[in-house]
């Protein structure tokens, strides 16, 4: 579900390879990202540009992963959100919590 795209000094750039982010795969997403973090011990940036559909369950999984990484002084950063997902983050005010970038280049600069 997640694939490491590039490893920088302080952050891993990861691509989320699903179209539907839902109740169906939220727990698996959480488990995969936390496993990757425990192995690498770095902040993680997730490119979600392939995600066309998201529900509250998956949103909860993202927040849960975010809280886990924060507790280890690391970060979960989001990249490439579609217009609807950006709107959903604004509606839930999670856009005030997460660092959100348009693409990986903005992080690498």
């Amino acid at each position: 579900m997640i694939k490491v795209y590039k490893e920088l000094d302080d952050i891993l750039l990861v691509k989320l390879d699903i179209k539907e982010a839902s109740l169906e795969n939220g727990d698996a997403f959480k488990a995969e990202v936390i496993k990757l973090f425990e192995k690498q011990q770095k902040s993680i940036a997730i490119d979600m540009s392939s995600v066309e559909y998201i529900d509250s369950s998956f949103l909860g999984s993202i927040v849960s992963v975010f809280k886990h990484l924060i507790s280890f002084k690391s970060e979960l950063v989001l990249v490439g959100l579609s217009k609807d997902i950006t709107n959903l983050f604004a509606l839930t005010r999670l856009d005030k919590v997460f660092k959100i970038y348009n693409n990986f280049d903005e992080i690498s600069k």
Partner: peptide, 26 residues
Amino acid sequence: EEMDDDTPLDVGNLMEHFGLLIITKA
């Protein structure tokens, strides 16, 4: 009800269930 922007944000206390919130706010 939305909390004021000045309210200190305890990230560890963020809710993880958004279904009712999303429907209510939308």
